[in-house]
Measured scan of single mutants.
Amino acid sequence: NQASVVANQLIPINTALTLVMMRSEVVTPVGIPAEDIPRLVSMQVSRAVPLGTTLMPDMVKGYA
């Protein structure tokens, strides 16, 4: 089972991601792979992401 990136806190719209905002977790459906966490740092979210939400490619500007 592949771990995905999950929000560790509420991430407001247009916030630049930092390591403390993200954790890896095995979830369904699968989201952005956990190994991409270093690449996500400083990228902005395109919408508010609630705590515990799996990050999907369309939620991060410039990821897809």
Score class of each variant (00 low, 15 high):
Asn1Ile: 15
Asn1Tyr: 15
Asn1Met: 15
Gln2Glu: 15
Gln2Ser: 15
Gln2Ala: 15
Gln2His: 09
Gln2Ile: 13
Gln2Phe: 10
Gln2Gly: 15
Ala3Ser: 15
Ser4His: 01
Ser4Asp: 01
Ser4Pro: 00
Val5Ile: 12
Val5Tyr: 00
Val6Phe: 01
Ala7Leu: 03
Ala7Ile: 11
Ala7Asn: 01
Asn8Glu: 09
Asn8Gly: 13
Gln9Lys: 09
Gln9Gly: 06
Leu10Gln: 08
Ile11Gln: 01
Ile11Trp: 00
Ile11Pro: 00
Ile11Ser: 01
Pro12Cys: 06
Pro12Met: 05
Ile13Pro: 08
Ile13Arg: 09
Ile13Met: 10
Asn14Glu: 11
Asn14Pro: 00
Asn14Arg: 05
Thr15Tyr: 07
Thr15Pro: 02
Thr15Cys: 04
Ala16Thr: 06
Ala16Met: 09
Ala16Val: 09
Leu17Asn: 01
Leu17Cys: 02
Leu17Ser: 00
Leu17Pro: 02
Leu17Val: 03
Leu17Arg: 00
Thr18His: 06
Thr18Trp: 03
Leu19Val: 09
Leu19Asp: 11
Leu19Asn: 10
Val20Arg: 08
Val20Lys: 12
Val20Cys: 10
Val20Glu: 14
Met21Lys: 03
Met22Val: 09
Arg23His: 08
Arg23Pro: 02
Ser24Cys: 05
Glu25Tyr: 06
Val26Pro: 06
Val26Trp: 08
Val26Met: 06
Thr28Ala: 14
Thr28Arg: 03
Thr28Glu: 15
Thr28Met: 08
Thr28Leu: 05
Pro29Gly: 05
Pro29Glu: 13
Pro29Ala: 05
Pro29Gln: 09
Val30Ile: 15
Gly31Tyr: 02
Gly31Asn: 01
Ile32Lys: 00
Pro33Cys: 05
Ala34Trp: 09
Ala34Glu: 10
Asp36Val: 10
Asp36Arg: 07
Asp36Tyr: 10
Ile37Leu: 12
Ile37Cys: 04
Pro38Cys: 05
Arg39Lys: 13
Arg39Gly: 12
Arg39Trp: 14
Leu40Asn: 00
Leu40Val: 05
Leu40Arg: 00
Val41Asp: 03
Val41Asn: 04
Ser42Gly: 12
Ser42Trp: 07
Met43Phe: 10
Gln44Val: 12
Gln44Ala: 07
Val45Gln: 01
Val45Ala: 13
Val45Ile: 06
Arg47Ala: 14
Ala48Lys: 07
Ala48Ser: 13
Ala48Thr: 11
Pro50Ile: 09
Pro50Lys: 11
Pro50Cys: 07
Pro50Ala: 14
Leu51Ala: 14
Leu51Asp: 15
Leu51His: 15
Leu51Arg: 12
Leu51Gln: 11
Leu51Glu: 13
Leu51Ile: 15
Gly52Gln: 05
Gly52His: 12
Gly52Glu: 04
Thr53His: 13
Thr53Val: 14
Thr54Leu: 09
Leu55Ser: 01
Leu55Cys: 02
Leu55Asp: 01
Met56Glu: 10
Met56Arg: 10
Met56Asp: 05
Pro57Gly: 11
Pro57Trp: 11
Asp58Gly: 09
Met59Ala: 12
Met59Leu: 06
Val60Trp: 01
Val60Lys: 01
Gly62Thr: 04
Tyr63Gln: 04
Tyr63Leu: 10
Tyr63Asp: 03
Ala64Phe: 04
Ala64Thr: 13
Ala64Tyr: 04
Ala64Arg: 11
Ala64Asp: 14
Ala64Leu: 13
Ala64Lys: 15
